[in-house]
Design a protein around this nucleic acid. Sequence first.
DNA 1: AATAAAATTGTAACTATTACAAATTTGTAT
DNA 2: ATACAAATTTGTAATAGTTACAATTTTATT
Lengths: 138, 138
Amino acid sequence: MDLNNGEIMDYLREKDIKPSSIRIKVLKYLMDNQIHPTVDDIYKGIGDDIPTLSRTSIYNTVNLFKQNGVVVEINLGEKESRYDINTKPHGHFKCEKCGNIYDFPLPENLNKKLSNFTINRMSINYYGLCPDCRKESE
Amino acid sequence: MDLNNGEIMDYLREKDIKPSSIRIKVLKYLMDNQIHPTVDDIYKGIGDDIPTLSRTSIYNTVNLFKQNGVVVEINLGEKESRYDINTKPHGHFKCEKCGNIYDFPLPENLNKKLSNFTINRMSINYYGLCPDCRKESE
DNA sequence: AATAAAATTGTAACTATTACAAATTTGTAT
DNA sequence: ATACAAATTTGTAATAGTTACAATTTTATT
């Protein structure tokens, strides 16, 4: 993804969000840094650009993005929430050594039905060692 | 499950936990109330029995239980953690209307491999409407 | 019964997040 | 461009779950 400001603004409008300078910067940050950042990551990532930036604005923005389906909030058992612009269903693997988070496609045979339940969304998280850290610890 | 104190104590010792009055009560509570309780649920559930009970003691206890594999901490995107005495792999369904949490079995043949990753544990959570709430909203 | 070790308590600290009012910026109509 | 209204952004204070830690109480050992 490498959109210019006009395209970013169009994308926001598609999602019924009125573009603003912070919203554009946050969305761009999320697209360029698909590391499932925390609010603090985003704040630090775009803070240099906006000297008066407030953390509250990042919270406002990600909450708006979440409501309007621009991001999905993910919760990996840490205290901080993370945000993912990839809103299609997929799994997350968190390395317990280096902390990196990896996406993976959902297992083919995962239950997609539970009889008489309505499933609106699912959150599939694995924890362990990523290939690099596994190699190191040998 | 309906164990007497002696059996509860033996179970704790098996897990290398020295029994104490609070630990016994917490474990019994967890066995009798498999609702994936929060620290506060536990505190309120056994507080009547121990007039001087402190929340910190519940935190100490569940953390010890977690370290020694007596419970598993579960995180359903709420601010409070929950604790599950069923430590075998299984999924959780949270009803977004009534808040109830249901266990469900994972498929026998669920893909538990990601090539070159070592998976230590997984957390599978679904969100939606439970059968009762689904019926009501028709 | 005296002492040591461990468990429990209570308070204070910490941190992520939200509430909210004030200040700033943006958009609109004259 | 100017004045006004609406929306965004900011900053501070409040909230809530959890942990740190020292003091107290309980339990175990000699």
